[in-house]
């Protein structure tokens, strides 16, 4: 199976909801939101958005996902059922603790499924960054000029809401959605 960005089908909303709903075993809500809301967050020095890069060892990534700080905190807490109050502490301090960081790595890893499908190319999590300012140019180019971008607000019951942006460098078969 070829593995170029043109073979990637960006996920529809129900795929996003099913993925995170299965991860957390909760009735996760997903709704569209403005891309303008995806920005650094925090009451101290603004943090994020976190950047997750997906590919299969080719120079051009197959997909990029941004998580704002609230969603990073929410998903990393919910993953191991930490007390919801920890989310507020993380957003206030702008910092994920060691356990949350480990959890969030796995959340970014599992999010590779947003781009994978049985008849599609292999897609794996290549790495994460704590800010778009830290990414290499091959990733920064996609963030600045994606051919496809969807922004969603994700609500995890009991933990709160945060934002995600899903981007691909090519439209590919997305035109068939």
């Amino acid at each position: 199976m070829p593995g170029s960005a043109k073979d990637i089908l960006p996920p529809e909303m129900n795929i996003v909801r099913m993925l995170f709903g299965t991860v957390f075993g909760r009735d996760v809500k997903v709704k569209p939101r403005s891309a303008s809301l995806m920005m650094p967050t925090g009451t101290g020095a603004p943090v994020g958005p976190f950047v997750a890069v997906y590919g299969n060892d080719r120079p051009t990534p197959l997909g990029v996902v941004l998580f704002d700080l609230p969603l990073a905190a929410i998903t990393s807490c919910a993953f191991s059922m930490m007390p919801p109050g920890v989310v507020n502490d993380a957003v206030r301090t702008g910092r994920l603790d060691e356990v949350m960081t480990d959890n969030f790595q796995e959340i970014m890893n599992i999010s590779s499924r947003l781009f994978g499908r049985p008849d599609g190319p292999r897609v794996r999590f290549e790495g994460g960054y704590s800010s778009p300012a830290l990414v290499p140019e091959r990733v920064g180019h996609i963030i600045r000029s994606p051919r496809f971008r969807d922004d969603w607000e994700i609500t995890v019951p009991g933990y709160g809401s945060g934002g995600i942006a899903i981007m691909t460098p090519e439209i590919g078969t997305a035109v068939a959605r």
């Binding site: 199976m1 599992i110 499924r113 499908r117 049985p118 008849d119 190319p121 292999r122 897609v123 794996r124």
Partner: peptide
């Protein structure tokens, strides 16, 4: 694993 393609399987 997150590997879900038929190739991987």
């Amino acid at each position: 694993t997150t590997e879900c393609s038929e190739d991987a399987r």
